[in-house]
Amino acid sequence: MTSLDGVIPGIVDAHLQQWNPRRTPWAANRASRLYRFVPGIGDRIFPVIVSRADREYVLTPRTVARTYEPRQYAADIAGVPAVAGVPIDTVVHMESHWRAESIEDQPAEDTTSVEETRYVVGLPFGERGAPRLGALIAHADPRAPEFGRILDEHAAVTDLFRGVRIISSRHPDPRVRDGGDTEGMLASAAFLEGFGEIAARKLIFDASVYSHQLYDVVTLAREYPDTPIVLDHFGIPAGVFGPIGLRTGATAAARADIMRLWRERMTTLAGHRNVSVKLSGLAMPVLGFGHERWGNIGDQATLAEMIGPFVEHIITHFGTERVMYGSNYPIDKPNSRMDMQVGALIDCLSRWGPDALRKVFRDNALRTYSIEEVSAP
């Protein structure tokens, strides 16, 4: 396998989430409280208290109901140098659901997500083997009252604030997890109007949608061609590897159709030069890898074989300048160790040579999220 040693000093993980059920009022707090007090019972009762859609999305309560902070992340990335030749030395934190459940529930003065920003910058990044925090993407909803003021509050907390994300994924299959509160959110008049506050501040927007929603990202990119947009999880072609939900990806023909439509939409999206793609979520359970609570892929070679066609299509159409790596940890953790994930992606990208590896695993994320390069010791 190709090594990154001599190519880059370290990997930038452009998609990491952190939380602590004892401290954070985030979306999974009900399961978190249960697991905190009775972890053994929590494992058994998880299928009872959590919807099938949520179970398929995370596979195990341990993913979301246990603390995941720099110490836990440092343990997960300890094996990366053995396969990559270099460590992960920088991370971008991605908002992790500190929000009102819907825009209607969110009062004008709501700044819950600002508390997440305060929480994240107070974590011990850069200590005891944990990478440094290079940038932060916060939660904020352009449809919200006083959206601009909330953006300014995030910026006042830390100079690492680079932009926002609001998960807008919705699926026609009723048993596939919805992240957004309404269909067509990104292309709605209210969203597009509020998005002007992001553009005016020269911030970044991370978009999280399912693959059938990619034309909404096209609309957003067309309306704001000078604002950087990063597509998370390579567009989430839910069910492309196997059955999920009620009927999604249930047959080989259905999976082929998911792949075909993903290809078409990604090709169209690539024509908008302000859009980059994050090779994150490579082992997301919602892609249809399987339903076992721990490990549905097998090994590095299997993962590389499965994601290879997606990586090839993205590099072919977006080039190597608009693609970056993200772990999506800990959501991907049940299906893939970090070293296996990184190794599989190196295997897929090595055919394009060291320049592509350098850009995807480091340079593009540094540039996109305006992260200062680490000074040589």
Rank of each mutant, 00 (worst) to 15 (best):
G6N: 08
V7E: 11
P9S: 13
I11P: 06
V12W: 02
P21I: 02
R22T: 05
R22S: 12
T24G: 07
A27F: 05
R33W: 01
F37P: 00
D43H: 01
R44C: 04
P47T: 10
V48C: 01
V50S: 07
Y57A: 15
T63W: 00
Q72D: 15
Y73C: 14
G79V: 00
G79R: 09
A82T: 03
H93K: 03
I103A: 15
P107D: 15
S113Q: 10
G122K: 04
D141F: 03
R149M: 03
G163M: 04
I166D: 02
I167E: 05
S169L: 08
D173K: 07
D181R: 00
T182C: 09
A189V: 04
A199D: 12
A200C: 01
I204N: 11
D206M: 07
Q213E: 14
D232P: 01
G235R: 07
I244P: 06
L246K: 14
A250F: 04
T251S: 15
A253Y: 00
R255T: 05
R265Y: 02
T267V: 13
N274K: 07
S280Q: 12
L282N: 13
L282M: 15
A283Q: 09
V286R: 03
G288F: 00
I297K: 09
M306D: 08
R322Q: 08
I331L: 15
M340E: 13
G343Y: 01
L345D: 05
P354F: 00
L366N: 09
E372M: 04
